[in-house]
Structures are given as C-alpha cells and as structure tokens.
C-alpha cells in the first residue's frame, strides 16, 4: 500500500527534463491520461519529432512509463505513455542532487476517476 516512493537513478536528466518547456508540458499532460506521441503533438501543438525526443528523455529519466499499445481510430497500433508522478522531492547533496519520486497510487487514481465522473 505504501512504499510508493523511489529514488530516481539519473537525477541530472530529471532536472534537465523538468527545465525543458516541452518536456514539462508533456509531463503534465500525461498525468491525467495515457497518450500517444501523435496525440500529444496535436493537442499541445508540439512538432512530432520533438515529441518523440522528449518522450525518450522523460522515459529515461523515469518520469513517464510506457503503458502499452493502443488502437487508434484508423486501426493503427501506437505506443501510449503515462506519468505517475505525484510529487518530486529534490535534495541537494554535496556530490549530486537526489530526486525522490512519489508515485500516484492506484487508490488515488480510482478515487480521482470516480470523482471526476460525478463532477462532469
């Protein structure tokens, strides 16, 4: 149930990703639902090649996760991603910063989804 917190392996690339305008926006968009690169590109108005590169960065930094392949309306299989970042805690140690990530739990997700349904 708890134990939702982990230390991210590459803190510098995490900070790098967060500092990039596109990456930050992609990360936010993926917090709410899973999306494909194409949809991110369309909804956020970011060039598709840039989206692919940023997704790669975010994935490597451990901030987003590959969720699987989804079927599009025109029957194509596309990779979809999602973020489970609930909180990031950055500590500046003498040698290098440490980033701890608290994961958004299943329980949180289920209640949030049920709650959104009633607020619609």
């Amino acid at each position: 149930m708890s134990g939702n917190t982990k230390t991210l392996a590459d803190p510098v690339s995490v900070l790098d990703s967060l500092g990039d305008e596109y990456s930050a926006r992609i990360l936010s968009a993926l917090t709410d639902e899973e999306m494909s690169a194409k949809r991110i590109s369309e909804e956020l108005g970011i060039p598709i090649a840039t989206v692919y590169r940023r997704i790669e960065d975010l994935d490597e930094a451990g901030l987003i996760e590959f969720e699987g392949k989804a079927l599009t309306q025109d029957d194509k299989r596309v990779k979809v991603y999602r973020s489970y970042v609930d909180e990031l805690r950055i500590q500046f140690e003498p040698d290098e910063p440490q980033v701890e990530m608290k994961r958004y739990s299943e329980a949180q997700r289920s209640i949030d989804e049920a709650w959104k349904r009633i607020k619609r």
Binding site: S105, E106, A107, R109, S110, I111, A114, R117
Partner: peptide, 13 residues
C-alpha cells in the same frame, strides 16, 4: 489488493 482496488471501486459505482 491495491491493483484490484480501482476495479472494485468501479464495480461498486
């Protein structure tokens, strides 16, 4: 089971 928790909640609703 936490993985089932969301499923249960959807069922309950």
């Amino acid at each position: 089971e936490e993985t089932d928790f969301s499923q249960s909640l959807v069922r309950i609703l």
